[in-house]
């Protein structure tokens, strides 16, 4: 048997010319701007969609769109959405989905309302709501992860189940929380600073912190790896199940804050609290540029997606079109964004 085809295994280093590129790593993009754009292309794409959309609305009706009142109504509801959109980016990156957050919002804010109505400090109510959200997130996550169920179906089921429970116990009755208005918690979380609703500042803080968690923290790194290749993650010693449960807990926390905020805005808790958020929030995540297949995503993109989605309705009406156009525009924006992201993102799996 001839050995001529065998590599020279005994003196390998002598035969290998050391390529000069070995000395220095060269970034393929020579300018930092290009690197920045490449790294954030999904978020920037979403921003472009938003700007174009707003431009169209403004051309349609320049006057209405410069009225402050319009932005303020968006700035009151947008934060509520942001608190669930952002954790959902983590869930989708992890290769899962959570459709149970509307019921979690309702459930956690119900606990908040009960505590406040019983005469306790609203801060205690917020703490109780957070604990409720965490527990529900843990419950849903464990069901999916340890029960080995499809998150799409299991969380849909949990959404009905929890909402049903709320309805059964409350028999459709709402709770008015008038005492909230002169509490410290209200001033801190729901008042206005220079005419701007403070919720938006809390939401921005949440987005920034979560973006750091996603991009610069061990948790985010593991979420991305697990969503990308769970087998490899497991082989490298990552507790894949635990990471998966954690993202559901994160949604639970976000939903609890969102639910509580929405109650504080309205001074009323409804048994349907959170229900209307299901579709807009999901749309925001994907409009924001997080793909459905897991492993990658963008928190900032998701936030911009939420801004886009929340401006559609207001924008359509402000532009002088009838409310019948809202759904059409919702769909149009979603489809256009998806097409844009498909063209904008390289797919490696």
């Amino acid at each position: 048997m001839s050995k001529t085809m065998e590599p020279d295994l005994h003196e390998p280093s002598a035969g290998i010319p050391r390529p000069s590129a070995q000395k220095e790593w060269k970034h393929p993009s020579d300018h930092w701007m290009r690197g920045f754009i490449l790294d954030n292309r999904a978020a920037l794409g979403t921003l472009a969609v938003f700007i174009v959309m707003m431009a169209v609305f403004m051309i349609a009706n320049p006057t209405v769109f410069t009225t402050w009142y319009l932005y303020r109504s968006v700035l009151t509801t947008l934060p509520v959405a942001l608190f669930v959109v952002v954790p959902l980016v983590f869930v989708v990156t992890c290769g899962e989905i959570d459709l149970s957050f509307p019921a979690t919002m309702g459930f956690a804010s119900w606990v908040f309302a009960l505590v406040v109505q019983a005469g306790y400090d609203p801060f205690l109510g917020i703490a109780a709501a957070l604990v409720t959200g965490m527990l529900l997130g843990f419950l849903v996550g464990s069901l999916v992860v340890y029960g080995g169920l499809s998150s799409l179906i299991a969380t849909l089921g949990m959404n009905f189940l929890l909402r049903g429970l709320i309805q059964i116990i409350n028999e459709g009755k709402s709770m008015a929380l008038t005492s909230l208005s002169d509490s410290w918690a209200y001033t801190i979380f729901s008042s206005q600073v220079l005419g701007i609703p403070v919720q938006i500042f809390w939401a921005i803080g949440f987005v920034v912190l979560s973006a750091m968690l996603y991009n610069r923290h061990r948790f985010g790194a593991q979420v991305r790896v697990v969503g990308d290749n769970p087998d490899s993650a497991q082989q490298m010693g990552i507790d894949v199940k635990r990471v998966r449960v954690k993202v559901f807990v994160f949604v639970g926390i976000g939903a609890a804050i969102a639910g509580t905020f929405s109650v504080m805005i309205n001074f009323t808790w409804w048994p349907t609290a959170g229900d209307g958020y299901l579709l807009p929030v999901l749309a925001s995540v994907f409009v924001g540029g997080t793909p459905t297949w897991g492993g990658i995503g963008t928190v900032v993109g998701g936030a911009i997606g939420a801004v886009t989605v929340s401006f559609i309705q207001t924008g359509v009406v402000a532009a002088g079109l009838s409310g019948f156009y809202v759904q059409f525009f919702n769909g149009l924006i979603i489809i256009l964004s998806l097409l844009g992201h498909k063209w904008n993102q390289a797919r490696y799996r």
Binding site: Q222, D231, G295
Partner: peptide, 17 residues
């Protein structure tokens, strides 16, 4: 056992960040 959508760094430090 690589996560192909992640960077080289993230793969090298996978599970050992």
């Amino acid at each position: 056992a690589l996560a192909v959508q992640q960077t080289i760094v993230r793969n090298i430090f996978m599970g050992r960040e």
